[in-house]
Computed example of a mutant assay.
Amino acid sequence: MDRDAVKSARRAFEILELFDRERRPLALKDILEALGYPASSGSALLKSLVALGYLDYDRDRRTYFPTMRISALGAWVPDALFGDGALLGAMERLRAVTGETVILATQSDLFAQYVHLLHSAEPLQFSVPPGARRPLAASGLGWCLLSAKSDEEIERLRRRINAEPGQAQPLSREALMGRVNEVRTRGYAVSKHTVSQGAGVIGAPLPRGAHGRVFALGVAGPVGRLEAKEALIIGELRAALERLRPSQAEAHRHDREGLPA
């Protein structure tokens, strides 16, 4: 793999994410300082993004700003992910009733990736942005996602994880399947201090959605608060799953028949 191409792709997305955070026109100096890029390569990349139509350059003010092409690129994603809005509604209800952060995750290679978050009004020890990734085999929502797979698929993933250069300690089949089977039996996972000390997640796998995508829905917060609300959270997760089943079934029908969601 061409490392320079990978670096350029990563930097292009970092620039777009910077605009998402700042939400204002930015000068070359602002971008280089915020991201720590060398002047020559940073300037060249920005010129490329302008030429491709993803950024606009204001010559009078010498600032860059995203074009509507960026918005158009992802305009279809919410419908593909959330369909008729039932899932977003379920997430809103979970946050309102539990008072905690609600997370929707899906698999991204060897990770569980947070694709949508509704943050709690209550303070969290750690701010988690959309797009954050957690180890698939060592996180609550990761165990939920794995529970929808066959044992053979899980074993292949376990071997890949153990072959990763940064894997300090081999992950045993018994330990992983113990976690996965617990989710299959109970219908939900409880994770405490697993990724971040003091933080936890109570989550459940969702019914398989359109295009075969598997998602997990979780409630995250400080362990003490989750323990105090555990029965409430589990009850609300189960109710959310029941409400979502008809919506997911309809998404499946549209997917099979090639109809718009």
Score class of each variant (00 low, 15 high):
Pro260Gly: 07
Thr194Asn: 08
His211Cys: 02
Arg69Tyr: 11
Pro205Thr: 01
Gly83Asn: 09
Leu124Ser: 09
Ile234Arg: 01
Ser147Ile: 10
Ile15Asn: 03
Thr98Glu: 00
Gln169Arg: 13
Ser43His: 06
Arg253Gln: 07
Arg173His: 12
Gly218Lys: 01
Ile161Val: 15
Ala51Gln: 14
Arg184Gln: 13
Ala90Thr: 01
Pro123Gly: 05
Glu17Arg: 08
Arg21Ala: 06
Cys144Glu: 11
Leu241Thr: 07
Gln125Lys: 08
Ile154Val: 15
Ala216Gly: 09
Ala121Ile: 01
His193Ser: 12
Val115Gly: 00
Ala137Ser: 12
Pro130Lys: 08
His116Leu: 00
Glu14Ala: 10
Asp84Pro: 08
Arg59Thr: 12
Arg186Leu: 14
Gly166Ile: 04
Phe82Cys: 08
Gly178Asp: 12
Thr185Tyr: 12
His193Asp: 15
Ala138Asp: 15
Ala132Val: 05
Gly140Ser: 08
Ser247His: 11
Ile161Met: 14
Glu153Ala: 14
Asn181Asp: 14
Ala228Arg: 13
Thr67Cys: 07
Leu171His: 09
Leu146Ile: 09
Leu124Gln: 05
Ala80Ser: 10
Ala51Asp: 15
Gln248Glu: 11
Arg243Thr: 05
Ala121Gly: 09
Arg208Cys: 07
Ala44Asn: 08
Ala240Cys: 09
Thr194Asp: 15
Gln197Cys: 01
Leu87Ser: 04
Arg11His: 05
Ala86Glu: 09
Ser108Ala: 12
Gly131His: 07
Val102His: 00
Cys144Ala: 13
Val201Thr: 09
Asp79Lys: 11
Ala175Glu: 13
Ala220Ser: 09
